[in-house]
Amino acid sequence: MDQDGANSQYLTEGRTLALTPRFSPNNDLVSYMNFDDGNPQVYLLQLSTGQQRRLGSFGAMTFAPRFSPDGGRIAFSVEASGATNLYSIAVAGGQPTQLTSGGAIDTGPSYSPDGSRIIFESDRGGSPQLYMMAAGGGQAQRISFGQGTYSTPVWAPKGDLIAFTRQSGGQFSIGIMNPDGSGERMLYTSFHAEGPTWAPNGRVIMFFQDPGGNDGPRLKSVDIWGRNVLTIPTETYASDPAWSGLRS
């Protein structure tokens, strides 16, 4: 759909659940989580041809895909034998590279705009927090230290900020911080709000919010100063927004 909710088109037929779509940098591929086989698996959809294919067969579940800035690789999570670790693989296929190891749940990877680093969510310290490491894996450094738990980190297009979801005191907040974890600010707080995605200008964030009761999830946007909160109209319930890059 357009960024204001107009001109919506359906890319999948609705036979199975499809979640967390992510655009490739050239806007022609979408990675997403498909429940076609019962367990979630990462699929690729080419917009220009409509062709779809499964990324590969790794572990019991694969999820949380995100493209590298050059569009050549995808980072994602693999659940196997009770552990969830991060992997990356070339979009063209081949053998995946394991980026993290251990018994923790590592998920939600997002590349820095220069492709050198990955920020992700991990409960290795006892609760879900944000960590940063080199794009090829290795030692990770924790960067979130506020109250509550952190998830769904996404690097801003300019590399100057990271958006995330924070859960604290029974409330969800959409926030931003500097890449080193400093300067944390909450932009929007609600009963349930999560899943931020950046506009190409790096100054507006879209996310989804569920007001509870009989109302389902809907899309909202807010600027990085916490102002201009808008509800994006959609035909029905909506979640997991992903903003495309600028079209060339």
Rank of each mutant, 00 (worst) to 15 (best):
I74D: 02
G125C: 08
S190K: 11
P196M: 11
G212F: 11
I224A: 05
P196D: 08
G245W: 09
L187Q: 06
F164E: 03
D210M: 04
A83W: 01
S248N: 10
N178E: 14
E235R: 10
S68K: 00
A140L: 04
D28M: 12
G126V: 13
I224C: 02
D210W: 05
P153Q: 05
E235H: 03
P157D: 10
G148K: 03
L44V: 03
E184V: 13
T197C: 11
P217E: 03
E194K: 13
Q209E: 14
I232T: 14
T236Y: 13
A80L: 15
S168V: 04
Y131N: 05
A75W: 07
M33N: 14
P233H: 03
P69S: 04
R166V: 12
S244H: 07
G136P: 08
D240E: 05
Q95R: 15
S88Y: 10
P21F: 00
G226A: 11
F208E: 06
Q46I: 01
K220M: 14
G212Y: 09
M206I: 10
V222R: 04
G159F: 13
I174R: 02
T97S: 05
G175E: 02
M33H: 09
I143N: 12
S68I: 03
P128V: 06
P157N: 03
A134W: 02
P217Y: 01
S116K: 08
G103D: 14
G94T: 10
E79R: 12
Q95F: 08
T107Q: 12
F172E: 05
G115M: 04
G159Y: 07
S116F: 01
S57D: 05
